[in-house]
Write a protein that binds this DNA or RNA. Structure first.
Lengths: 254, 254
DNA sequence: TAGTGGTCTAGACCACGCT
DNA sequence: GCGTGGTCTAGACCACTAA
């Protein structure tokens, strides 16, 4: 890694810095290697620590670096591809998916979700009714890559035993099992950028506010939206893949 | 908007601030409305400007705010849904899509793209050969929402007139038209988080480093990857939608 | 030219992971 | 306890937009 001072250019210092660091990462570091600490890097490049941090933040956003408080900054491995394609799942909790059911409770969903579940049929002004909320975690290679909340209309799972197991996870699995009995008429997904809430951050082993890819799935059955799943994927470590029929296997990215 | 001082809590100030501002945005501001400037907001909440900015950055990342240098901070409209589903396109440039072709040139692609286009058939050590690179822009409601580079194998468009029009846009359209003659065998998409390069930023009317959703599409024809498209969508204003067969129309999000 | 957000500095202290 | 990254401050100047 060079020690050259940055010149005064119309380009922001942190941008220049990011480029220099990025190239150094490619040529002089290997995955998992630990970088010098921020104070030293800042001194080496002749900038304030805040400026250096601005560059590191960008590189972390791009999945090039991983920073952990109390530990240090390391070179991140390539992003893992996680399949979220239409063929990957039918109903949530279908056998073979790599989600684990954590918990389940009756709760009032966020307004946006309530609107989806209510559909056009009921434009009434009643307060949003509670729905069954199942919490799941997606694991890949032993590490959590996503958290998810599945909001299920109660009338979509009428066969649920009316006992309420103390074990939320067992209840969650029962809910998803019942849901899976319905014929799935279609699903529709959206992807957008968000930031991790306090609970998601804890589950994903990140700080609150960490960037996440929010994947919202609407499950249609019986002519309406029976369930809505909101999954938050770690944006720094994940690459979402949507495989299509007939598509060739992608070459491994470097 | 309240003027109450923030208490000293174990929660970071900027996080608290973000919550307070977010609620104020919901209840006391309407879309397009301009907020007080950063110096005044910081004073009002009793924090340093840098701390206030940290909160604003998060809200901008979530698509709640829009900040423009020399102008001010305004309340952002809801994100626009842009369709990138499998049914949305066949080949790039198919009639009816809302992309406009800007330019085309012969250039050496990034290493990752070159690897995709080379495929497994040629694991040789030759330098990456130049490919046809078409630049496009996607417009929605009069505003650019995405930029894209389509990398096309030259041997996938043999019918191209060997004249090279001075007009790059015309050449680009010709390339895509030729490409569209091939039977499309499949496509495969990935979505990940990135940051806008200098040129993308200019086209998207954003600053360099702005967060973008990078959509990479691999087009298969004749048993191999004939083209790779790398599109960068404005993460602050876009919600990518992947519509499936049989899916109901989503309710408009608030 | 005035006012905005964007960049940058040189400090300080805190929360966390290790040993 | 020590070293790490995370938060925060109080300034300064710059780049841009619009009147």
């Amino acid at each position: 890694m060079g020690t050259t001072q940055l010149e005064t250019v119309p380009e922001p210092k942190y941008w220049h810095l990011k480029t220099v660091l990025s190239e150094a990462l490619d040529s002089e570091f290997s995955v998992g290697e630990i970088l010098p600490n921020e104070r030293e890097l800042a001194a080496r490049f002749g900038v304030a620590r805040a400026t250096l941090r601005q560059a590191l933040e960008q590189l972390e956003l791009e999945g090039r670096l991983q920073r952990r408080r109390g530990v240090g900054t390391t070179v991140a491995p390539p992003r893992v591809g996680v399949d979220v394609g239409p063929a990957a799942e039918s109903w949530p909790g279908a056998p073979g998916d790599d989600w684990q059911t954590d918990d389940c409770e009756r709760a009032v969903p966020p307004a946006a979700v309530a609107r989806e579940l209510a559909g056009a049929e009921a434009g009434d002004a009643e307060g949003t009714p509670p729905v069954l909320t199942v919490r799941r975690t997606r694991m890949t290679a032993g590490a959590p890559v996503a958290g998810e909340l599945v909001y299920v209309r109660e009338d979509a799972v009428p066969g649920l035993p009316d006992i309420t197991p103390a074990d939320g996870a067992a209840l969650g699995r029962a809910v998803l099992r019942e849901l899976g009995r319905l014929p799935l008429e279609g699903q529709q997904r959206t992807v957008e950028l968000g930031s991790a809430g306090a609970d998601d951050a804890r589950r994903l082993d990140r700080l609150p506010g960490a960037p996440v890819l929010v994947v919202t799935t609407r499950y249609a059955a019986e002519g309406r939206t029976a369930a809505v799943a909101v999954a938050t994927y770690r944006a720094d470590t994940c690459r979402l893949t949507f495989a299509d029929s007939g598509a060739p296997e992608p070459v491994l990215a470097g």
